[in-house]
Design a protein around this nucleic acid. Structure first.
Lengths: 339, 339
DNA sequence: CTCGCGAATGTTTACGTTAACATCGGCTGA
DNA sequence: TCAGCCGATGTTAACGTAAACATTCGCGAG
């Protein structure tokens, strides 16, 4: 059982089956020109010896690894981990494995290091889940034959980009609040470096401007519930704030708590809309109206994009937007009648 | 630039630098017996050609991939994704890459398939994040030289197991509520199949029994906030329920909402304790008292365990428990005075 | 009946790397 | 002065697989 012997190779199987190792190879790869009886013999020998193809040798010979590398900063964000999961599922469906390259700190040095590691890694393509400006300085070290797909970026001119339609999602959120009769909508942003956050902020601003509404100063958060709580405390001090659009659901959770503590009822006094549609958004107090992101679809398109590049050989540029949809729950209502 | 030529190999570098390919290999691996001037020449040639070691060839030669496979069901659970992240970070620190094998549906067939894929995959060891009984039928297909570490299991006699100290965590939660003066503590469980959930339930029951308290019937959830909400509605109908221990934070969120909707104040009327300490637990209404799980440490010990096995060559059995600690926030208080 | 063709299988070689062994000088010490 | 040794580098072979080419054999057409 616990032999620490050398692995079983094709040669071993061939010897037992009384054929050449090439025939074993043919059986392993389902090549048609092997007669039934020989095939059975070989399969029996494989089973007896517990043969498993050696993927290193296979990759060396074929020049391809059937593996996709995913480089990202953190799995703490729901978006990242859900996207990763979708990527892994779809890649597995296509017979590709996923190699994970976490980058602890988003500095250029770290990213560069990660890319260097990836370059040595057994990977046919890379999906990058991060802001692209960090990628730029690292590009030089990218092996030229490795294809890249980027998420959360606007670098569609240089890379193949897949992203949620941030702009339309934010627009829907703001429009929903305006339609309910709110005069304007306040906004809690994500971190400055985040492309997604910037896009949401831009769309919020534009939607207000196009409706001819005043644009209140945005409050800056960092995606965390804690930062949402701080923003919420500030908002509770603004007597004419009746509607808030929060750049993600976790910050919305913090806003809800702050408003609750300050005696502002949601949605009677103040409406709140989030972004992401976390699985637990429906259990917030009150259940949160939010913009649903389809991470599964994002992951699917990433894999699709990278596979097309790998198989086509040529990088494709352009941006693919995955649509969002507003999920209306109980945290939004018309504004209170003026005092 | 965009040559789709063959990759640069050691032989190419060697030719340009005017040395043998073995010398290039020595430089690449930091072997000491290469004189400075030669080393510089080789490094220059590497840079000029953009040389990158071919990991497939390397793995083939060495018989090791410096890669760890992680097999899990889903990343949706915070615990899994945080553990995975910690595993990836620590593995990277040790120069190991992570290959992800998601299993869509937790049936034995699926698991078996995943293990078969892993067997062909370039992996030196495997970390399994799932209930072990699903592993059992699949064991036969495990390549004998691949080491396994298991999380969330009690199979310490057959595998090396790393887990959070579920028992002590649950005990702390219940003891905290009893110390506050509650007569007994109700419990919302996770799904039946979950080892972690069972352990928490057992510990809850034992702690009550040892204190000589009555054991109310447990309510069964499935980890989701939605299921917590349903349990919360049921609990709100129990007039003498003053304290609830919920098997995770997401269900606690649902319980909080149900109690809130039914007019039960938390913690004045009913105390609630969760398990996990999600980053946003402090932003619940009210901030949740919960049992903190140290996923980083779990990940670290998994990697440590698997590396010891890989390097030692022999599987090690036994269970490592990572301690938990109770984080007291504002969802717990002494019971209301009897009416 | 024989030639030739194609199906089934075998043999050779190369993929890129590195361990093991071989070689070549120069330096130390008697 | 030279044997011996060590440090620097080169040469050979092997890891397991699969493509390319080679061989064998049976069978049908002429």
């Amino acid at each position: 059982m616990a032999h620490l012997k050398r692995r079983v190779s094709m040669a071993d199987v061939a010897r037992l089956a009384g054929v050449s190792s090439q025939t074993v190879s043919r059986v392993a790869n389902g090549h048609p020109s092997v007669v039934g009886s020989t095939r059975q013999q070989v399969l029996a020998a494989m089973r007896e010896l517990g043969y498993r193809p050696n993927s290193a040798a296979r990759a060396l010979k074929r020049g391809a690894f059937r593996t996709i590398g995913v480089i990202l900063f953190t799995l703490s964000s729901t978006g990242n981990s859900r996207t990763l999961e979708a990527i892994a599922d779809h890649a597995a469906g296509q017979g590709y494995a996923i190699t994970l390259i976490p980058v602890a700190v988003p500095t250029q040095d770290e990213v560069l290091g990660a890319f260097t590691r990836l370059g040595e890694l057994a990977v046919d393509g890379i999906i990058v889940i991060m802001e692209v400006h960090l990628l730029d300085s690292a590009t030089v070290t990218l092996p030229p034959h490795v294809q890249v797909v980027v998420v959360d970026s606007d670098a569609g001119d240089r890379y193949s980009v897949v992203d949620t339609d941030q702009t339309d999602g934010a627009r829907q959120a703001v429009a929903h609040l305006l339609e309910l009769g709110h005069r304007t909508v306040w906004h809690v942003t994500g971190p400055q470096e985040s492309f997604a956050s910037n896009r949401r902020e831009q769309a919020w601003r534009r939607t207000l401007e196009e409706a001819g509404r005043p644009v209140p100063p945005p409050l800056h958060g960092d995606w965390s519930a804690e930062s949402g709580y701080r923003a919420g405390l500030a908002l509770a001090d603004e007597p004419d704030c009746t509607a808030v659009f929060t750049a993600n659901d976790q910050m919305a959770l913090g806003v809800l708590r702050a408003l609750h503590e300050q005696g502002r009822r949601v949605p009677a006094d103040t409406s709140v809309v989030g972004f992401d549609d976390l699985p637990e958004a429906g259990a917030f107090i009150p259940p949160l109206t939010t913009v649903h992101q389809d991470f599964t679809e994002v992951g699917r398109r990433c894999v699709q994009g990278i596979l097309r590049q790998i198989e086509g050989g040529e990088p494709e540029h352009g941006t693919t937007l995955v649509p969002t949809r507003l999920v209306v729950r109980e945290s939004t209502a018309p504004p209170p009648p003026p005092a």
